[in-house]
Design a protein around this nucleic acid. Sequence first.
DNA 1: CTCTGGCACTCCGGCCCCGCGAGTGCTAAG
DNA 2: CTTAGCACTCGCGGGGCCGGAGTGCCAGAG
Lengths: 350, 350
Amino acid sequence: MPPDTDKRLTDRRALILRAIVSHYVGTGEPVGSKVLVERYRLGVSPATVRNEMAALEDGGYIYQPHTSAGRIPTDAGYRYFVDEMPEGARLPAAEAHRIRQFFVEPRWELEEALRQTAALLSSLTNHAAVVFAPALDRSLIRHVELVALPGGRAMLIAVTDTGRVDNHVVLVPDDVEETDLVAASEALNKVLAGIALEDAAATVRNRAGEVSQSLAPLFLLAADAFEGPADEKAHERFFLEGTSHIVDEDKFSDLESVRRVIGALEHRRLLLEVLADAFSLGGVSVRIGAENPAQEMQLCSVVAAPYGTGESALGSLGIVGPTRMDYRRTIAAVHEVSSHLGQMLAGLGI
Amino acid sequence: MPPDTDKRLTDRRALILRAIVSHYVGTGEPVGSKVLVERYRLGVSPATVRNEMAALEDGGYIYQPHTSAGRIPTDAGYRYFVDEMPEGARLPAAEAHRIRQFFVEPRWELEEALRQTAALLSSLTNHAAVVFAPALDRSLIRHVELVALPGGRAMLIAVTDTGRVDNHVVLVPDDVEETDLVAASEALNKVLAGIALEDAAATVRNRAGEVSQSLAPLFLLAADAFEGPADEKAHERFFLEGTSHIVDEDKFSDLESVRRVIGALEHRRLLLEVLADAFSLGGVSVRIGAENPAQEMQLCSVVAAPYGTGESALGSLGIVGPTRMDYRRTIAAVHEVSSHLGQMLAGLGI
DNA sequence: CTCTGGCACTCCGGCCCCGCGAGTGCTAAG
DNA sequence: CTTAGCACTCGCGGGGCCGGAGTGCCAGAG
């Protein structure tokens, strides 16, 4: 097998590919052989570089938008660039400092903290940023309460140890008195304290037999309430900031694709899908262009990471931007923010 | 004063202005005198129409993007069109039916219902839609609870009669036991039931003297928690759907303005400002282009309305779109959705 | 076998020019 | 007051032209 078609690139080709990616990310314009030798001290002539570029094009790492234009990285080119990137990429000091500053101030309101984290990530990277709240279903119940509402309804509230409040409205029969609700709350608390939210429905249903005649129906109602929205995991809260960056500059060529990307960002399901492998893979995961499962996202790259305390991942966060992005800085920023966020939550004892 | 400069337009000019607006909204292209006489049965010649158009241009109702092009309505032109619009504009049957269908299904989860309402409004109008949740501060407290959390924190939860749950984290001194929190919850409930959230802080502070030594500090902490986020009214929850419509088609000419509009939609403060007069004015309010207080919105129109039960407005909703929009349909849709939403909330006993 | 200088070639983008057509404003007559 | 006619303006799209950037290939040097 001749070296040209070997999947492993020669060192020089890799060097040239990296130079092409760097330069294209910076300028947004197709990169020619001449600027490469001039700006990147390759020590060879443009002609040689051209030969190598032809090989890189054969390998699918770069392409020409039209004959006699410079080269642009393909998704595979970016992929190689990202995979071969030196691990310990460090953020510029100013940005690292901003992140530290941000997490130094105490933030007690979880939801607001997560929203602000999304805003921070967006402004660090200049891309749209999204932060998913800690998954509710694995959180442990700290306290539950049934509160009567007008209109024959009651509200079932569950406070988790992550500091989130999950609430559902249930319809209660007319003959239920407020005192019954209080009694039921007390009983539910005994049963549910320390139970994971995802197990709550089953637990309550199991114990419904053991409680007094008057409380049993309320237990069943509560079980329904816990069950209902659990199956739609899409129910998770998330915080999206910096959508307007999607429109930025010239990075997305046509309006229609911008429209579709922004539309996609509004759908929890898609976003969840997109950030899904941050969970499974661990560490910072990068999806480049067509690597994205969602049709609408195939012009974007997604950089995502889980965050959590110690081993367990609580949630995930990430950014969505054009394939032409500064992966080093973006990855570093996502990494840094996710680990700081994890530490902050740990500090809250979550 | 010659009639040409009279602010009140002659009937014929008004007719022509309405025709121009209708046609321009439909086609997006400058309207000439010829198509006007052909399509709108004006019964006069193009030359006459041209004279009238010149007068309308003097009056500031229309303008030419360049010499020898048709006319386009100015903000003032749209304004006149909207003001003189027949009141009882009715939605097409299909859309009215969609709205009724939507509100027929019971929706118990308030937040989810509001989000879906925003989505409905967006898809009815093809514009970005926003729904503000009922203002918390005027809601009456139904139940409060102090729940211990890890990390020396506790969560103060307030359930209002609108079915919303307001929660704040407070830091508690080390020496506070869980039983103190339970006792404090009970005492707070006695004091706060039926009190408006905006009065909660003052009420708790006043009564702090009357409770036992051990509970007083907790009362003060609770008062702080109620007070804190109250001053930032911007804390209100809102639901934004259909942002991608902003990018739609050709309505906004340059990308930079699209960017700014989308950016503006992310800021609660701006949105609140924009929907503010829906509250003060009552009924459907329309802000056209430069009538908007916010710089970023001066290329948009905002159609907003309060919603509520009976007399009192609970919240507001509206849409943001290009000045070139179908005001009749949009206004009708906003009106219809807001009144149905109000009825739905009334049905919940709010 | 690899590298390099040279060269012919391609193609995009900007430019000018031109002609078409839509739409106007004016004028003079009904 | 209305209208027909007319000359005028201007944006837009198409065609042709040119310059420049960048390429691929080839032949010769190392």
